[in-house]
Design a protein around this nucleic acid. Structure first.
Lengths: 225, 225
DNA sequence: ATTATCTATAGATCTATAGATAATGC
DNA sequence: ATTATCTATAGATCTATAGATAATGC
């Protein structure tokens, strides 16, 4: 009898206890997370069912709640992970040293490759920001400081180049919007595009590679005086 | 007793009967449709609840099923309506007569204006094609014939221009992808953009107008030899 | 002793229908 | 007589938890 009461108290506080993350623990937890990411990416928050996520993980459904308590909790972890990934991807190209042109090329190229490797990520984030204002706040808090910094760096370089007369009088924000429009849209609108052309996998790969070169070319042209 | 049986039979076959569409009828039906469109656009199929659609319409919840039988039915009507709208929007610019450059400008401009007036439409269609293969089929059936025609027209004009040397050797499909990437992305990614800049309504309008001009400029530049 | 896992199910939510009643048109 | 509408609720689906048992680590 006492056993049962102690057990029930334990059950109540257990989720709040810091876990040890033994090897086995980490594995199941991570498997559920990956399954959750997959299902959330494909169906969005409302369309994703915890039963499906669990079935996908190959563990009992109760495990999902044991590790993450609620669907909302699980979602938040997936969402934040990916907001950070996306935000940081903008950075990777900027760290290169070199001429303005070289930096722009590496920025576009790295960013394009990141999205190519995570083709469902952008649409997922856009949808979830639209759905829930709290996600919007997370996006702002995580991405704003980094994007502001990146934006400032690009603006500074653009203004410097303007003075030398190497590039035209372009608005930095519009310049950035051009880059992300060209880089992201093919992945966001993948079904629209793949339905017009019926690409095989290889053809699609080739199309993306051409697309990347085309984007670099277009953006550099946009800079010309 | 007999009355009840007759009534029950009537209830069964009623939904399949062609309706007369009296004035009153049309009104309620259309109100529900509009409410459904609004909610489906905002929350997608899974996130939209028939109770919310009904509440939004100001009629009893049962009315929704009375007119449309199922959520799926109601959705299909909204979806097909909007696939047709989007597909036809591509056309409106092409009908103009004039030089190649003029046609391209009117195409981009009309298309951009259409999406500006229906900012949530594209994201809705992309998501629903992703979600359900049947929607994908509808998209293909409705849009393919029209888009193929438009694509062929553009290709023909491009090839003609190539011979005169007025434009560079550009791949027509990539050219079209460039146009729709630039035109659609700002609307699809509206929350991402509006979170970086905190535009007022007026500022946002001005941004969109600049964006349209920028897109025209970029596309014309992309054509230059 | 502690942690991980399973089965069964409570409780909430959502779609759809039953059945009754009100409104409309001939 | 026909059509439109309402209230109440059945039935399905989904999230979350209870309670028991198995696996793990000290």
């Amino acid at each position: 009898m006492l056993n049962i009461i102690v057990y029930q108290i334990y059950r109540k506080i257990q989720p709040f206890l810091q876990k040890d993350m033994t090897k086995k623990d980490k594995k199941t937890e991570e498997i559920i997370l990956q399954s959750a990411e997959k299902v959330f990416f494909e169906k969005g928050y409302a369309g994703a069912k915890t039963t499906e996520i669990a079935k996908n993980s190959g563990v009992g459904h109760a495990m999902l709640h044991y590790y993450f308590r609620t669907k909302e909790n699980l979602f938040q972890i997936v969402f934040e992970r990916n907001v950070e990934l996306l935000t940081n991807s903008v950075f990777s190209g900027l760290e290169k040293q070199g001429s303005f042109k070289e930096i722009i090329i590496s920025l576009i190229s790295n960013h394009f490759d990141f999205v190519r490797n995570n083709p469902k990520l952008v649409l997922f984030i856009i949808n979830e920001i639209n759905r829930n204002n709290n996600n919007n706040t997370i996006w702002k808090e995580v991405s704003a400081p980094i994007l502001t910094k990146v934006s400032a760096q690009i603006t500074e370089r653009i203004n410097k180049e303007k003075k030398t007369g190497n590039i035209r009088d372009i608005d930095p924000f519009n310049f950035i919007v051009t880059i992300i429009s060209l880089n992201l849209f093919v992945f966001v609108a993948h079904p629209l595009i793949n339905n017009i052309k019926h690409f095989t996998k290889k053809e699609y790969e080739a199309f993306l590679e051409r697309r990347k070169q085309e984007n670099i070319r277009l953006v550099l042209m946009a800079l010309q005086p």
